[in-house]
Design a protein around this nucleic acid. Structure first.
Lengths: 197, 197
DNA sequence: ATGGTATGATACCGATCGGTAACCTCAGCG
DNA sequence: CGCTGAGGTTACCGATCGGTATCATACCAT
Protein backbone atom coordinates (compact mmCIF):
# COMPACT_ATOMS: atom_id res chain seq x y z
CA UNK A 1 0.00 0.00 0.00
CA UNK A 2 1.06 3.53 -0.64
CA UNK A 3 -0.24 4.45 2.80
CA UNK A 4 2.43 2.18 4.20
CA UNK A 5 5.16 3.65 2.07
CA UNK A 6 4.25 7.13 3.12
CA UNK A 7 4.57 6.28 6.78
CA UNK A 8 7.98 4.71 6.43
CA UNK A 9 10.83 6.53 8.07
CA UNK A 10 11.04 9.55 10.33
CA UNK A 11 8.84 12.59 9.92
CA UNK A 12 11.79 14.38 8.39
CA UNK A 13 12.28 11.68 5.80
CA UNK A 14 8.60 11.57 4.94
CA UNK A 15 8.38 15.31 4.57
CA UNK A 16 11.49 15.40 2.41
CA UNK A 17 10.40 12.53 0.20
CA UNK A 18 6.90 13.91 -0.23
CA UNK A 19 8.11 17.44 -0.91
CA UNK A 20 10.49 16.16 -3.56
CA UNK A 21 7.72 14.27 -5.32
CA UNK A 22 5.23 17.11 -5.19
CA UNK A 23 7.69 19.82 -6.21
CA UNK A 24 8.78 17.73 -9.14
CA UNK A 25 5.29 16.81 -10.29
CA UNK A 26 3.44 20.06 -9.79
CA UNK A 27 6.10 22.73 -9.48
CA UNK A 28 7.42 24.55 -6.46
CA UNK A 29 5.00 27.43 -6.14
CA UNK A 30 2.01 25.21 -6.83
CA UNK A 31 2.67 23.16 -3.70
CA UNK A 32 2.02 24.58 -0.24
CA UNK A 33 3.65 23.46 2.97
CA UNK A 34 0.31 22.33 4.35
CA UNK A 35 -0.18 20.04 1.38
CA UNK A 36 3.29 18.57 1.83
CA UNK A 37 2.70 17.86 5.51
CA UNK A 38 -0.70 16.28 4.91
CA UNK A 39 0.59 14.11 2.07
CA UNK A 40 3.47 13.00 4.29
CA UNK A 41 1.02 12.00 7.01
CA UNK A 42 2.27 14.58 9.44
CA UNK A 43 1.74 18.25 10.23
CA UNK A 44 3.25 21.56 9.30
CA UNK A 45 5.04 21.68 12.65
CA UNK A 46 7.14 18.65 11.85
CA UNK A 47 8.10 20.25 8.58
CA UNK A 48 9.26 23.42 10.29
CA UNK A 49 11.02 21.50 13.05
CA UNK A 50 13.23 19.90 10.40
CA UNK A 51 13.56 22.66 7.82
CA UNK A 52 13.98 26.36 8.57
CA UNK A 53 11.70 27.45 5.71
CA UNK A 54 10.03 26.33 2.53
CA UNK A 55 12.80 27.96 0.52
CA UNK A 56 15.39 25.91 2.38
CA UNK A 57 13.35 22.78 1.85
CA UNK A 58 13.41 23.50 -1.86
CA UNK A 59 17.16 24.02 -1.76
CA UNK A 60 17.63 20.80 0.20
CA UNK A 61 15.60 18.93 -2.38
CA UNK A 62 17.77 20.27 -5.20
CA UNK A 63 20.94 19.47 -3.29
CA UNK A 64 19.70 15.93 -2.91
CA UNK A 65 18.94 15.73 -6.60
CA UNK A 66 22.41 17.02 -7.37
CA UNK A 67 23.98 14.34 -5.18
CA UNK A 68 21.94 11.54 -6.72
CA UNK A 69 22.63 12.83 -10.21
CA UNK A 70 26.40 12.71 -9.82
CA UNK A 71 26.19 9.43 -8.00
CA UNK A 72 24.58 7.74 -10.99
CA UNK A 73 26.81 9.66 -13.36
CA UNK A 74 29.93 8.44 -11.61
CA UNK A 75 28.61 4.89 -11.44
CA UNK A 76 28.08 5.00 -15.16
CA UNK A 77 31.53 6.46 -15.78
CA UNK A 78 33.16 3.71 -13.78
CA UNK A 79 31.81 1.15 -16.22
CA UNK A 80 33.91 2.51 -19.06
CA UNK A 81 36.82 4.17 -17.24
CA UNK A 82 39.04 4.47 -20.29
CA UNK A 83 36.42 5.11 -22.92
CA UNK A 84 35.10 8.68 -22.74
CA UNK A 85 33.18 8.18 -25.96
CA UNK A 86 31.20 5.33 -24.46
CA UNK A 87 30.65 7.31 -21.29
CA UNK A 88 29.10 10.06 -23.35
CA UNK A 89 26.99 7.59 -25.23
CA UNK A 90 25.85 5.97 -21.99
CA UNK A 91 24.92 9.34 -20.55
CA UNK A 92 22.69 10.12 -23.49
CA UNK A 93 21.14 6.67 -23.45
CA UNK A 94 20.30 7.12 -19.78
CA UNK A 95 18.82 10.52 -20.55
CA UNK A 96 16.83 9.11 -23.45
CA UNK A 97 15.40 6.40 -21.28
CA UNK A 98 14.47 8.84 -18.56
CA UNK A 99 12.87 11.22 -21.02
CA UNK A 100 10.87 8.46 -22.69
CA UNK A 101 8.77 8.07 -19.55
CA UNK A 102 5.44 9.77 -20.31
CA UNK A 103 5.37 11.00 -16.72
CA UNK A 104 8.72 12.72 -17.11
CA UNK A 105 8.71 16.21 -15.70
CA UNK A 106 12.07 17.45 -16.90
CA UNK A 107 15.07 18.56 -14.90
CA UNK A 108 14.24 19.77 -11.37
CA UNK A 109 17.07 22.28 -11.58
CA UNK A 110 16.01 23.87 -14.85
CA UNK A 111 12.38 23.83 -13.78
CA UNK A 112 13.27 25.52 -10.51
CA UNK A 113 15.15 28.17 -12.47
CA UNK A 114 11.91 28.97 -14.26
CA UNK A 115 10.01 29.47 -11.03
CA UNK A 116 12.72 31.06 -8.92
CA UNK A 117 14.01 34.35 -10.26
CA UNK A 118 15.34 35.82 -7.01
CA UNK A 119 19.13 35.78 -7.06
CA UNK A 120 19.29 35.47 -3.27
CA UNK A 121 17.09 32.38 -3.08
CA UNK A 122 19.03 29.51 -1.47
CA UNK A 123 18.21 27.28 -4.44
CA UNK A 124 19.74 29.62 -6.99
CA UNK A 125 23.30 28.79 -6.07
CA UNK A 126 22.55 25.06 -6.11
CA UNK A 127 21.20 25.33 -9.63
CA UNK A 128 24.13 27.38 -10.81
CA UNK A 129 26.76 25.03 -9.42
CA UNK A 130 24.96 21.97 -10.76
CA UNK A 131 24.66 23.22 -14.32
CA UNK A 132 28.17 24.66 -14.40
CA UNK A 133 29.51 21.34 -13.22
CA UNK A 134 27.56 19.43 -15.83
CA UNK A 135 29.00 21.63 -18.53
CA UNK A 136 32.48 21.11 -17.11
CA UNK A 137 32.10 17.35 -16.96
CA UNK A 138 30.89 17.24 -20.52
CA UNK A 139 33.83 19.37 -21.60
CA UNK A 140 36.18 17.06 -19.78
CA UNK A 141 34.82 14.05 -21.64
CA UNK A 142 34.99 15.88 -24.94
CA UNK A 143 38.57 16.83 -24.27
CA UNK A 144 39.47 13.24 -23.52
CA UNK A 145 37.90 12.20 -26.78
CA UNK A 146 40.26 14.60 -28.43
CA UNK A 147 38.08 17.01 -30.32
CA UNK A 148 39.28 20.41 -31.44
CA UNK A 149 37.12 22.68 -29.32
CA UNK A 150 35.99 20.56 -26.39
CA UNK A 151 34.05 23.40 -24.78
CA UNK A 152 32.09 24.05 -27.92
CA UNK A 153 31.07 20.45 -28.41
CA UNK A 154 30.28 20.14 -24.71
CA UNK A 155 27.92 23.10 -24.83
CA UNK A 156 26.23 21.75 -27.92
CA UNK A 157 25.65 18.45 -26.19
CA UNK A 158 24.49 20.34 -23.13
CA UNK A 159 21.87 22.13 -25.19
CA UNK A 160 20.59 18.80 -26.44
CA UNK A 161 20.29 17.52 -22.88
CA UNK A 162 18.42 20.55 -21.69
CA UNK A 163 16.23 20.57 -24.75
CA UNK A 164 15.27 16.95 -24.27
CA UNK A 165 14.43 17.48 -20.62
CA UNK A 166 12.28 20.52 -21.18
CA UNK A 167 10.57 19.03 -24.22
CA UNK A 168 9.67 15.89 -22.32
CA UNK A 169 7.28 17.90 -20.20
CA UNK A 170 6.00 20.34 -22.80
CA UNK A 171 2.67 19.48 -24.41
CA UNK A 172 3.13 19.12 -28.15
CA UNK A 173 6.86 18.57 -27.82
CA UNK A 174 7.18 15.29 -25.97
CA UNK A 175 7.94 13.12 -28.99
CA UNK A 176 10.90 15.25 -30.01
CA UNK A 177 12.91 14.17 -26.98
CA UNK A 178 13.27 10.70 -28.45
CA UNK A 179 15.79 12.01 -30.96
CA UNK A 180 18.28 13.26 -28.41
CA UNK A 181 20.73 10.36 -28.47
CA UNK A 182 21.03 10.29 -32.23
CA UNK A 183 21.52 14.05 -32.34
CA UNK A 184 24.33 13.73 -29.82
CA UNK A 185 25.96 11.00 -31.86
CA UNK A 186 25.89 13.20 -34.95
CA UNK A 187 27.48 16.13 -33.15
CA UNK A 188 30.18 13.97 -31.62
CA UNK A 189 31.03 12.14 -34.82
CA UNK A 190 31.04 15.27 -36.88
CA UNK A 191 33.54 16.77 -34.50
CA UNK A 192 35.79 13.79 -34.84
CA UNK A 193 35.90 14.11 -38.57
CA UNK A 194 36.73 17.79 -38.43
CA UNK A 195 39.80 17.18 -36.29
CA UNK A 196 41.04 14.11 -38.09
CA UNK A 197 41.33 15.95 -41.38
CA UNK B 1 9.57 58.26 -18.64
CA UNK B 2 8.35 54.78 -17.97
CA UNK B 3 5.42 56.26 -16.09
CA UNK B 4 4.29 57.73 -19.37
CA UNK B 5 4.68 54.50 -21.25
CA UNK B 6 2.71 52.63 -18.67
CA UNK B 7 -0.24 54.96 -19.03
CA UNK B 8 -0.40 54.69 -22.78
CA UNK B 9 -3.43 52.97 -24.21
CA UNK B 10 -6.61 51.66 -22.68
CA UNK B 11 -6.77 49.95 -19.33
CA UNK B 12 -7.10 46.66 -21.15
CA UNK B 13 -3.95 47.27 -23.13
CA UNK B 14 -1.99 48.36 -20.08
CA UNK B 15 -3.08 45.35 -18.09
CA UNK B 16 -2.24 43.02 -20.94
CA UNK B 17 1.14 44.57 -21.61
CA UNK B 18 2.06 44.64 -17.93
CA UNK B 19 0.89 41.10 -17.32
CA UNK B 20 2.93 39.86 -20.26
CA UNK B 21 6.07 41.54 -18.95
CA UNK B 22 5.62 40.35 -15.37
CA UNK B 23 4.67 36.78 -16.26
CA UNK B 24 7.67 36.54 -18.50
CA UNK B 25 10.13 38.05 -16.04
CA UNK B 26 9.01 36.49 -12.79
CA UNK B 27 6.86 33.54 -13.77
CA UNK B 28 3.12 33.08 -13.73
CA UNK B 29 2.47 31.95 -10.19
CA UNK B 30 4.88 34.50 -8.77
CA UNK B 31 2.77 37.39 -10.04
CA UNK B 32 -0.57 38.22 -8.46
CA UNK B 33 -3.43 40.04 -10.13
CA UNK B 34 -3.12 42.91 -7.67
CA UNK B 35 0.51 43.41 -8.65
CA UNK B 36 -0.38 43.44 -12.33
CA UNK B 37 -3.10 46.04 -11.83
CA UNK B 38 -0.89 48.28 -9.71
CA UNK B 39 2.00 48.07 -12.16
CA UNK B 40 -0.39 48.91 -14.99
CA UNK B 41 -1.54 51.99 -13.11
CA UNK B 42 -5.06 50.69 -12.66
CA UNK B 43 -6.98 48.40 -10.34
CA UNK B 44 -8.01 44.79 -10.12
CA UNK B 45 -11.51 45.71 -11.27
CA UNK B 46 -10.30 46.86 -14.66
CA UNK B 47 -8.41 43.61 -15.05
CA UNK B 48 -11.52 41.56 -14.33
CA UNK B 49 -13.67 43.77 -16.54
CA UNK B 50 -11.47 42.81 -19.50
CA UNK B 51 -10.43 39.26 -18.67
CA UNK B 52 -12.65 36.59 -17.14
CA UNK B 53 -9.90 35.19 -14.91
CA UNK B 54 -6.18 35.15 -14.31
CA UNK B 55 -5.94 31.80 -16.09
CA UNK B 56 -7.57 33.30 -19.16
CA UNK B 57 -5.24 36.26 -18.99
CA UNK B 58 -2.33 33.86 -19.01
CA UNK B 59 -3.80 32.04 -22.00
CA UNK B 60 -4.38 35.34 -23.82
CA UNK B 61 -0.78 36.30 -23.22
CA UNK B 62 0.46 33.02 -24.69
CA UNK B 63 -1.88 33.34 -27.66
CA UNK B 64 -0.43 36.78 -28.30
CA UNK B 65 3.08 35.41 -28.06
CA UNK B 66 2.17 32.68 -30.51
CA UNK B 67 0.84 35.23 -32.99
CA UNK B 68 3.90 37.44 -32.73
CA UNK B 69 6.18 34.46 -33.00
CA UNK B 70 4.73 33.27 -36.30
CA UNK B 71 4.51 36.81 -37.54
CA UNK B 72 8.26 37.28 -37.28
CA UNK B 73 8.87 33.74 -38.47
CA UNK B 74 6.85 34.35 -41.62
CA UNK B 75 8.50 37.70 -42.18
CA UNK B 76 11.85 35.99 -42.03
CA UNK B 77 10.73 33.21 -44.34
CA UNK B 78 9.58 35.71 -46.93
CA UNK B 79 13.12 37.02 -47.21
CA UNK B 80 14.37 33.75 -48.65
CA UNK B 81 11.26 32.23 -50.21
CA UNK B 82 13.09 29.63 -52.24
CA UNK B 83 15.92 28.85 -49.89
CA UNK B 84 14.78 26.68 -46.99
CA UNK B 85 18.35 26.23 -45.86
CA UNK B 86 18.79 29.96 -45.40
CA UNK B 87 15.45 30.18 -43.67
CA UNK B 88 16.62 27.63 -41.17
CA UNK B 89 19.88 29.45 -40.72
CA UNK B 90 18.07 32.75 -40.23
CA UNK B 91 15.79 31.20 -37.63
CA UNK B 92 18.74 30.01 -35.59
CA UNK B 93 20.52 33.31 -35.94
CA UNK B 94 17.44 35.08 -34.66
CA UNK B 95 17.24 32.65 -31.80
CA UNK B 96 20.93 33.08 -31.03
CA UNK B 97 20.55 36.82 -30.91
CA UNK B 98 17.54 36.62 -28.65
CA UNK B 99 19.23 34.19 -26.34
CA UNK B 100 22.37 36.28 -26.10
CA UNK B 101 20.47 38.96 -24.20
CA UNK B 102 21.51 38.57 -20.54
CA UNK B 103 17.94 39.39 -19.55
CA UNK B 104 16.56 36.55 -21.66
CA UNK B 105 13.99 34.54 -19.79
CA UNK B 106 13.48 31.67 -22.21
CA UNK B 107 10.38 30.62 -24.06
CA UNK B 108 7.11 31.73 -22.45
CA UNK B 109 5.42 28.58 -23.68
CA UNK B 110 7.96 26.16 -22.29
CA UNK B 111 8.18 28.12 -19.05
CA UNK B 112 4.41 28.07 -18.70
CA UNK B 113 4.48 24.32 -19.19
CA UNK B 114 6.73 24.07 -16.15
CA UNK B 115 4.34 26.00 -13.96
CA UNK B 116 1.04 24.75 -15.34
CA UNK B 117 0.51 21.03 -14.97
CA UNK B 118 -3.30 20.98 -15.11
CA UNK B 119 -4.42 19.51 -18.43
CA UNK B 120 -7.62 21.56 -18.37
CA UNK B 121 -5.89 24.91 -17.97
CA UNK B 122 -6.77 27.20 -20.90
CA UNK B 123 -3.08 27.77 -21.56
CA UNK B 124 -2.27 24.10 -21.96
CA UNK B 125 -3.84 23.81 -25.38
CA UNK B 126 -2.12 26.98 -26.57
CA UNK B 127 1.24 25.56 -25.58
CA UNK B 128 0.55 22.24 -27.21
CA UNK B 129 -0.55 23.74 -30.53
CA UNK B 130 2.37 26.15 -30.59
CA UNK B 131 5.05 23.54 -30.04
CA UNK B 132 3.47 21.02 -32.37
CA UNK B 133 3.34 23.65 -35.06
CA UNK B 134 6.94 24.62 -34.53
CA UNK B 135 7.98 21.02 -34.96
CA UNK B 136 5.86 20.77 -38.10
CA UNK B 137 7.32 23.92 -39.61
CA UNK B 138 10.83 22.73 -38.93
CA UNK B 139 10.00 19.39 -40.53
CA UNK B 140 8.60 21.17 -43.55
CA UNK B 141 11.82 23.12 -44.01
CA UNK B 142 13.92 20.03 -43.55
CA UNK B 143 11.84 18.20 -46.12
CA UNK B 144 12.31 21.02 -48.60
CA UNK B 145 16.03 20.84 -48.05
CA UNK B 146 15.81 17.24 -49.05
CA UNK B 147 17.18 15.29 -46.13
CA UNK B 148 16.46 11.64 -45.63
CA UNK B 149 14.40 11.74 -42.46
CA UNK B 150 13.04 15.28 -42.24
CA UNK B 151 11.13 14.60 -39.03
CA UNK B 152 14.21 13.31 -37.30
CA UNK B 153 16.35 16.28 -38.23
CA UNK B 154 13.51 18.65 -37.35
CA UNK B 155 13.20 17.19 -33.87
CA UNK B 156 16.92 17.38 -33.35
CA UNK B 157 16.89 21.04 -34.31
CA UNK B 158 13.86 21.52 -32.10
CA UNK B 159 15.77 20.13 -29.14
CA UNK B 160 18.55 22.62 -29.77
CA UNK B 161 16.06 25.48 -29.83
CA UNK B 162 14.42 24.42 -26.61
CA UNK B 163 17.76 23.77 -24.99
CA UNK B 164 19.05 27.19 -25.89
CA UNK B 165 15.94 28.89 -24.56
CA UNK B 166 15.92 27.10 -21.26
CA UNK B 167 19.67 27.43 -20.79
CA UNK B 168 19.51 31.16 -21.39
CA UNK B 169 17.67 31.58 -18.13
CA UNK B 170 19.35 28.89 -16.06
CA UNK B 171 22.13 30.08 -13.75
CA UNK B 172 25.36 28.33 -14.66
CA UNK B 173 24.12 27.45 -18.14
CA UNK B 174 23.70 30.82 -19.84
CA UNK B 175 26.92 30.71 -21.85
CA UNK B 176 26.05 27.39 -23.45
CA UNK B 177 23.22 28.94 -25.44
CA UNK B 178 25.74 30.78 -27.59
CA UNK B 179 26.62 27.55 -29.38
CA UNK B 180 23.14 26.85 -30.67
CA UNK B 181 23.56 28.14 -34.23
CA UNK B 182 26.75 26.25 -34.84
CA UNK B 183 25.23 23.07 -33.45
CA UNK B 184 22.29 23.46 -35.80
CA UNK B 185 24.61 23.95 -38.75
CA UNK B 186 26.47 20.75 -37.89
CA UNK B 187 23.28 18.73 -37.67
CA UNK B 188 21.95 20.11 -40.95
CA UNK B 189 25.17 19.66 -42.86
CA UNK B 190 25.75 16.19 -41.54
CA UNK B 191 22.32 15.23 -42.77
CA UNK B 192 23.03 16.57 -46.20
CA UNK B 193 26.13 14.47 -46.55
CA UNK B 194 24.33 11.33 -45.51
CA UNK B 195 21.72 11.71 -48.26
CA UNK B 196 24.05 12.88 -51.01
CA UNK B 197 26.18 9.79 -50.78
C1' DA C 1 11.41 6.35 37.62
C1' DT C 2 13.47 10.04 34.89
C1' DG C 3 14.66 13.12 31.60
C1' DG C 4 15.48 14.02 26.89
C1' DT C 5 13.86 13.68 22.06
C1' DA C 6 10.65 13.30 18.44
C1' DT C 7 6.20 13.75 17.09
C1' DG C 8 1.29 14.85 16.96
C1' DA C 9 -2.70 18.17 17.45
C1' DT C 10 -4.74 22.50 17.33
C1' DA C 11 -5.17 27.10 17.30
C1' DC C 12 -3.42 31.11 15.77
C1' DC C 13 -0.80 35.05 13.12
C1' DG C 14 -0.64 38.71 9.36
C1' DA C 15 -0.40 38.69 4.54
C1' DT C 16 -1.80 37.55 0.23
C1' DC C 17 -4.41 34.84 -3.04
C1' DG C 18 -8.16 35.12 -6.96
C1' DG C 19 -12.44 37.27 -7.47
C1' DT C 20 -16.76 40.36 -6.66
C1' DA C 21 -20.23 44.23 -5.37
C1' DA C 22 -21.42 48.85 -5.19
C1' DC C 23 -20.64 53.44 -6.15
C1' DC C 24 -18.67 57.41 -8.37
C1' DT C 25 -16.48 60.16 -12.20
C1' DC C 26 -16.01 61.63 -16.65
C1' DA C 27 -15.73 61.86 -21.53
C1' DG C 28 -18.22 61.16 -25.86
C1' DC C 29 -22.23 61.54 -28.36
C1' DG C 30 -27.07 61.73 -29.66
C1' DC D 1 -29.51 67.99 -22.08
C1' DG D 2 -29.30 63.10 -20.82
C1' DC D 3 -27.66 58.66 -21.79
C1' DT D 4 -24.05 55.28 -22.21
C1' DG D 5 -19.81 52.88 -21.49
C1' DA D 6 -15.17 52.81 -19.71
C1' DG D 7 -12.64 53.22 -15.89
C1' DG D 8 -11.29 54.58 -11.13
C1' DT D 9 -12.17 53.74 -5.88
C1' DT D 10 -13.08 51.24 -1.90
C1' DA D 11 -14.52 47.64 0.66
C1' DC D 12 -15.23 43.15 0.97
C1' DC D 13 -15.34 37.75 0.35
C1' DG D 14 -13.59 32.98 1.68
C1' DA D 15 -9.47 30.52 1.02
C1' DT D 16 -4.88 29.84 1.30
C1' DC D 17 -0.15 31.37 1.92
C1' DG D 18 4.31 30.69 4.94
C1' DG D 19 5.26 30.46 9.64
C1' DT D 20 4.68 30.13 14.96
C1' DA D 21 3.13 29.09 19.83
C1' DT D 22 1.40 25.86 22.99
C1' DC D 23 0.32 21.60 24.94
C1' DA D 24 0.04 16.71 24.98
C1' DT D 25 1.86 12.14 24.01
C1' DA D 26 4.93 8.44 23.39
C1' DC D 27 9.23 6.29 23.27
C1' DC D 28 13.97 5.44 24.50
C1' DA D 29 18.02 5.50 27.26
C1' DT D 30 20.08 6.11 31.67
Amino acid sequence: MSKRAKNEGSARERVFRTAAALFHRHGIRAVGVETIAAEANTTKMSLYRNFPSKDELVAAWLRDHDARFWQSWDAMSREYPDDPRRQLKAAFELLAKHVADPKARGCPMANAAVEITESDHPATKVIKVHKARLRARLAELCARIGVGDSRLLADQLFLLMEGAQVSAQTPGARAAAASVARAAAVLIDSNRFSTEV
